[in-house]
Computed example of a mutant assay.
Amino acid sequence: MISRSHSRGRRLVTLGAIAASAALVLTGCSGGLAGGDSGGSSDGPIKLGMLAPFSGSEAAFGDYMKYGAQLAIDEINADGGVDGRELELVTEDDGCDATAAVAAANKLVSAGVEGSVGGYCSGATLPTLPVFKEAGISMVIPAANSTKLVGQGAFLINGTGTQQGKAAVAYAEKLGAKSVVLIDDNTDYSVDLANAFEEQAGSLNIVKRESVNPDEKDFGANTNSVIGANPDFIYWTGYYQAGGLLIDQLRAAGYDGTILVGDGSVDAQLAAIAGPAIENVFGTFTRTPDMLEGGDAWVAAYTELAKADPGPYSMQTYEAVKAIAQAMDDAGSTDAEAVDKALLGLKAFPLLSGDLTFAEDGSREGGGFVIVSPTGEKGAFVLSDDLS
């Protein structure tokens, strides 16, 4: 149970209270939000911009993130908003494409957003950093977690690639892996995560690194290369579309050992694509509501709003909104410099996923990665090992 008091009128947030009602009573925002030179207009809603993939191969995550953000906004507005000003969500499609993301970021700037709570694909999020920085807009990123994002002025709700790689190494060591193969899909996120594993591998024997073209359907050359290395542990760091096909083809080629996937593949669609080959597959991921005491109430509230179940990064985007709203309240401003300072001042800020504290470089202290497996309903990932 979380029960911790905070200044500026923050309400106590407990998982027990969450379980008592599907409409969560979350952190209220009070105090004065200054306009003019202190940042932002004192009239009208505070617009929060969100870049996410609403088209392309990762399109499912766009709605997961949108409804997570909207749920947080609805709760904050129902509780009085931020000093009487409502929050408003403005979304743009980045398609997980760097060029499209820059254009979409500029649209959000033109729309007058005063904070950014988006970012799924690291490769698409990275080039938007200077766009928002130049416009004086604070960024709280819910999903993208490449180490290249760290120290760039943004704040990450998700654990970093370094933290995730450390959890993957710990799991491989726990299983007694003797020979490890790392496979990426040539994206910034995927390569970064594979690098993080390799850099922290210690005594683990990495016998091969392999890269695939995610636009292909036949990974025969890759699977033959991997099988030839005779691994007993494979870490796939790419996204689920190619991941599901790769897992199926690895099994067909004779590999029956453990396959661990990164958080970009932690989605029920992985099992749908891989079929029976999904057995003995696990993932590195941060905790989801179904893994938390009282999280069922949050799921019920989300489902009522979205008319669909939450998916990966629904909760993280919800928490990104909560964090930036509280920081704006604490700062008494939407000015980026003031809000960023207030974000750094959030110490053990209570959220569903656990108390939030940002390190000086904008990363989330602790990371919070666990091991999950696609053994839930319709291939949903559920907690398998908390690495304690």
Rank of each mutant, 00 (worst) to 15 (best):
L129D: 08
K166T: 11
G165S: 03
N224C: 14
G238R: 11
G244K: 14
Y235E: 14
A154W: 04
Q241V: 14
S146R: 13
G228D: 13
N205C: 04
I141A: 10
Q163E: 13
N158H: 07
N205Y: 05
V212L: 02
A196C: 01
V131Q: 00
E210W: 04
S225G: 12
N195S: 05
I247Q: 13
N224Y: 11
F197Y: 07
N158W: 05
S146K: 12
Y239I: 13
K133A: 15
K148P: 15
A194T: 13
D184Q: 03
K178C: 05
Y240S: 14
L149K: 09
L204A: 02
I206T: 06
Y239S: 10
T223A: 07
E173S: 06
T223S: 04
N145S: 08
Q164H: 07
G220S: 13
V207E: 03
A154P: 06
A154D: 15
T147M: 08
Y171S: 05
E216D: 12
L193K: 02
E134P: 13
K133C: 12
A221Y: 05
Q163D: 10
Q163F: 07
P142L: 08
D185P: 01
M139P: 13
S190V: 03
L245S: 15
S190Y: 02
L182A: 04
E198D: 10
K178V: 06
V226K: 02
P127E: 05
G161C: 03
V140N: 06
S190H: 00
S203H: 05
F132R: 09
F132S: 09
K208D: 01
L204E: 00
Y171R: 02
A135C: 10
K208R: 04
F155K: 05
G243W: 06
D192L: 00
G243P: 05
K217P: 11
I234G: 15
S225Q: 11
I141P: 09
L250M: 12
K178E: 08
E173C: 06
E173I: 02
A242H: 12
A168L: 02
K148N: 12
F197C: 02
K174D: 04
N222H: 10
K166W: 00
A201S: 04
V181W: 01
Y235L: 15
T162C: 10
Q163G: 14
G136S: 10
A167F: 04
M139C: 13
T187E: 07
A135P: 13
L129C: 12
L246C: 14
Y189T: 01
A168I: 01
V150M: 07
G153K: 05
P231D: 10
